[in-house]
Design a protein around this nucleic acid. Sequence first.
RNA 1: GGGCGGUUAGCUCAGCUGGGAGAGCACCUGCCUUACAAGCAGGGGGUCGCGUGUUCGAGCCACGCACCGCCCACCA
Length: 704
Amino acid sequence: MTIDPRYEPASVEPRQFQRWIDADAFSADPNSGKPPFVIPLPPPNITGELHMGHALNGTVQDTLIRLRGMQGHETLWICGTDHAGIATQNVIEKQLRAQGLTRHDLGREAFVEKVWEWRRQYGATIIQQFKRLGSSLDYGNERFTMDPEYVAAVAEVFVSLYEKGYMYRDNRIVNWCPSCSSAISDLEVRYEHAADALYHVRYPIKDSTELLTVATVRPETILADTAVAVHPADDRYRHLVGRTVIVPIVDREVPIIADEYVRTDFGTGVLKITPGHDPNDFEIGRRHELEELTVIGFDGRMNDQAGEFAGLPAAAARQQVVDRLFSLGLLKGEDPYEHEVGHCDRSGDRIEPLISLQWFCDMQELAKPAIEAVESGRVTFHPRSQENTFFHWMRQIRPWCVSRQLWWGHQLPVWYCADGHVTVERSQPAACAECGTAQLERDPDVLDTWFSSGLWPFATLGWPEQTERLAAFYPANVLSTDRGIINLWVARMMMLGQEFAGQMPFSDVLIHATVQAPDGRRMSKSLGTGINPLDLVDRHGADATRYGLLKMASTQDVRFSEGSIDEGARLANKLWNASRFVLMQAGEAAAPAPSTADPVDRWILSRLSGASADVLRLLDAYDFSGAVKELYSFVWNDFCDWYVEAAKARLYGEDADARQAVSQTLLWVLERMLALMHPVMPFVTEELWSHLPGDRELLVLSPM
RNA sequence: GGGCGGUUAGCUCAGCUGGGAGAGCACCUGCCUUACAAGCAGGGGGUCGCGUGUUCGAGCCACGCACCGCCCACCA
């Protein structure tokens, strides 16, 4: 037998992967009787390309799946992708724009068909990329959040939530993204530092020569002011409560009201109230039954109510309003002002708080069992400290705005008749639930993409049908993800899983590290700081990449170091050559057996069992970095540097019995070592396993 | 504003319930020793972010500060 003196990943990886596929090694049998072990892959967006986060998370999950499989579990790693509503629609709209078109030129049906076409062509790219890492996903049961069965599951959940009274429609102020032309949820708003100005504006008091000065960063919304507020206990202004001021420029008479919300120590202690364009003012407005005026439209431009400013983008209107205030002598001054401003997580556009009619889901009741599950330890986060993030959000959870003004996604299962009656059904209703008319129009909106991904652990198994797979593989065991979507996704899966599948969807939430760029900045395409994990696989091999990622990802944030990947490559090569040496000595010997005659043999056997125990213990504790270091030290230092070197004397000696004994022990330790290494380095170990003497099953299917 | 994590050798990081400062890479010296030069043997290199405190003793515990990264947050 000849084996290359150097491990060449590129020539081994495709071949070994194909063997796993041919042996159907990644599918799960619901009737095997073995204890299940299930991980739902966080479904990547169909628009996504494999990035470092995917690669790390994929490696973590694959290591666990392979480990548990070898330990005798029936393992299932749920595979699939997310339709990613806004993200995907934006990609297609961008393509259209390049051709000078908008989605409205195509119309809804043609546009959605175009997205499907795109999805058929490119939507599986990232799943193919996961294969390069050796991921043992259940490819045969790949799911998509827009599969027909999944669509039915989403409708079932929506209708059921509606029937239980959680889902309602309301006219409220929402986070509006002008460039997406849609509302988004609170969690999709990203706050960014902005250097604006704080303007001090004088409002004349009616029947008085007095002026009241307010401070605002958004003078353009003055046009929609419907009150001015002071704190009820503020002696400076107490006498003015109940009087009237004249809103500058529009000369509207509005009341001076008192509200606890106003801070006496900010600005002048007088707050202008614009219920139509500020979430706080909206709440105050509702408390005081103020009129809700709108001067900024859904396109982010001033609307007809804005008079002379109509048609201007809000930002441009701001400057013109300021100029007018100045010329009216009502601008008292302006100060530089730095604050946090909401931006759309998807488009990056500045959020415009606007009042609109949307569907909301009341989350408070749904949150309770999820909070309790974490408090009681039935669901545990690793590391534990991440539970703070979860509790903080869940204990003060607010209604979830679930409707999106998009075309790509799960259209709401809601119909309206001409009289405005609402009919919520699992499938197209024949008649209005209230008046019976057959003239119904479906709500054009679609659901927040996180609504459907919230059903992932059970909708992928056939729910609401009571399938064998659902019975066998729900709930899952581990959910591994980035800490950025603990609330966005993990918490929602927990709430919906409990409500609809009757149990928490998993018991262990793994929050893996975030890999930063080598300079400590965020790794991102837009910053140009991204490192493509597939390049690493090309250059160092998949096993090396996996090893390196596990090695470096020990704390919450970690800087990328190619040195760790390189260490993995060297370890793979070391394993390769150690095996080569052992196999050359072993020849075509029979099944290996350890010998305990020599103290050196006893030493390595003892080290092997010690290292095995350590590695398994560390992996059980999700300490991948520690496990990988232990593996390295055993393979390199104990086995190669000490045992193999010590074994040479006997191997090359005159004593035939000693030669036999040491060669047997070498082979035996090698075999166990390959098995122990397999979850981390599946390719090189599987290849070497195939060179071991005797008929043997694939390593991935062999017991640990 | 609140929370989480980090700050240890030139670089990336380990250091568990307080008592030896460590690994890999890089560097230096000597070896192409017949599994591997992606190798072997050996070596230099750190007031463990700053300050105070607890202790016989602190990288490790407490409090405070600084800087970096991230999450959450309805103060114009």
